Computed example of a mutant assay.
Amino acid sequence: MKKLILLLSLMCFVFGIQAQNRRQGVRSTTVKKTAVAKKARTSEVKKIVPMTSEQVTEYTKHMVDSVKMEGSNWESILILPGLTKNEIYRFAKEYMSKNFTNWAKNIQLDDVENGKIVCMGALQTIVVKKMNPIDGKNCAEVFNGNTKQTLTLDIKDEKVRVRGEGFAWTGKATLYIENMSCDPSYYYGEGLLTMSMLIGEEKNVAGGETMCCDALRLGVLQYLTGLRNYSLKAKLDDDF
Rank of each mutant, 00 (worst) to 15 (best):
7 L>E: 14
205 V>Q: 09
127 V>Q: 05
193 L>A: 14
168 A>W: 08
208 G>M: 05
234 A>T: 08
67 V>H: 15
142 V>W: 13
127 V>I: 14
165 E>C: 10
88 I>E: 00
240 F>R: 08
36 V>P: 00
5 I>C: 06
183 D>V: 12
60 T>W: 10
222 Q>G: 14
214 D>V: 12
49 V>F: 04
173 A>C: 06
240 F>I: 06
154 D>C: 02
43 S>V: 08
116 K>A: 09
107 I>M: 09
194 T>A: 05
65 D>Y: 13
228 R>F: 10
147 T>D: 06
165 E>V: 13
85 K>R: 10
19 A>I: 13
222 Q>R: 14
3 K>F: 14
43 S>N: 05
43 S>H: 03
174 T>C: 15
232 L>D: 02
183 D>L: 10
54 E>Y: 04
81 P>Y: 11
172 K>C: 04
182 C>S: 03
91 F>Q: 03
57 T>W: 02
113 E>Q: 01
39 K>W: 02
132 N>L: 08
76 S>C: 15
86 N>P: 02
86 N>L: 11
184 P>I: 07
109 L>T: 10
8 L>T: 15
164 G>E: 04
146 N>Y: 14
191 G>V: 00
12 C>N: 15
108 Q>Y: 12
117 I>L: 09
194 T>P: 00
164 G>L: 03
154 D>A: 04
137 K>E: 06
6 L>I: 11
107 I>Q: 08
